[in-house]
């Protein structure tokens, strides 16, 4: 068995066990209603986490994700409410700006040989600051498109609602899985995370791949911003504070190695859902402070980093070799 699969299997097991335990305590948690809310409430986090998974597999990190989400919500709100743009036009502009922002960060990381941590930290301050300059106050978005989107959903058996933004997240995961595992671009991303020197010698377009990875991450953060603005019907410069860290946690809990080279998009999905489960449990309980979410996530994160250490530092199993002479 591929040893990289082990953390993913562990995550899946933990999620299943935690869900069963929660359902035993609160039977009403086993409903499509709760599941639908899982998807809706975590849509923006899930979308951003897909981009983060690509970045981390490539051996980098993107700290600007939360700030880009915040900036995008403000940009969309100002474009719609102040400039009178149609929401879809505003979405297109926002995605374009986010993509360009990511491309510039990727180029800086590759060509200036600055660690991604530093470049995206600068990106974080820029985006967050830019959002505050656009508007320091929250801007409510009122538009018939927003009302229409928030009213439309697919009714699941049992009364659950699969909302548009939940669907967007599922689609992003589906495309992400194909992109990572079934395209040349995906194999280049894993190659970068494995060894940049080897990748370059093997003909991987290192510059293009690096730029594209950060472009992808920022674009998905932009999409997460759009989803967030649909979710809250507002644009606020301080929204989605610290979401990049939640996304990193989801990626790592999902079995992706922080040092790059190994990981699964599907694992990130479970990582996001696990965070959602903890939050939902706390809501059901009603007596616990919401900060318990952070404590549980912190504990899980620590557990998984330990687990990865064990799996990857143990001498790898030797493959069987048959020599024909």
């Amino acid at each position: 068995m591929n040893r990289a699969l082990r953390p993913l299997i562990a995550t899946t097991l933990i999620f299943a066990l935690a869900y069963v335990a929660a359902v035993l305590q609160y039977p009403s948690m086993l409903s499509t209603r709760v599941l639908g809310n899982f998807l809706t409430d975590n849509a923006f986090l899930g979308i951003a986490a897909v981009g983060m998974t690509f970045v981390i597999i490539s051996g980098g990190i993107d700290l600007s994700v939360g700030a880009v989400i915040g900036f995008t919500t403000v940009l969309i709100a100002t474009l719609i409410m102040w400039a009178g743009l149609h929401p879809f036009a505003a979405f297109a502009v926002a995605l374009g700006v986010a993509a360009l922002f990511g491309a510039v960060m990727g180029a800086a990381i590759h060509y200036l040989k600055v660690p991604s941590f530093i470049v995206t930290l600068a990106g974080m301050f820029l985006a967050r600051g830019g959002a505050s300059v656009l508007s320091p106050d929250s801007i409510g978005i009122k538009h018939e498109v927003y009302t229409a989107i928030s009213r439309s959903y697919i009714l699941l058996p049992g009364g659950g609602r699969l909302t548009v933004i939940g669907l967007v997240m599922l689609a992003v995961f589906a495309v992400g899985i194909i992109l990572a595992h079934r395209t040349r671009f995906g194999s280049y991303v894993y190659a970068l995370g494995g060894s940049e020197t080897s990748a370059a010698l093997m003909g991987v377009p290192v510059a293009r791949t690096t730029v594209l990875v950060y472009t992808l991450s920022a674009t998905l953060a932009g999409l997460a911003g759009i989803v967030f603005s649909l979710y809250t019907s507002a644009g606020y410069s301080l929204s989605a504070l610290g979401v990049e860290l939640d996304a990193i946690a989801a990626v790592v809990i999902g079995g992706t190695l922080l040092t790059g080279g190994y990981g699964f998009i599907a694992g990130t999905f479970i990582g996001v859902m696990l965070q959602g489960l903890v939050q939902t449990y706390i809501v059901f309980d009603g007596t616990l402070s919401s900060w318990w979410t952070k404590i549980v996530i912190g504990g899980l994160l620590f557990l998984f980093i330990l687990l990865q250490r064990l799996v990857f530092s143990a001498s790898s199993p030797k493959g069987k070799v048959f020599w024909k002479t």
Binding site: R3, A4, G319
Partner: peptide
Amino acid sequence: GLEIDVKAELGSY
């Protein structure tokens, strides 16, 4: 003259 599981990680050889 080599027969191995080509789907396995290279690092496992």
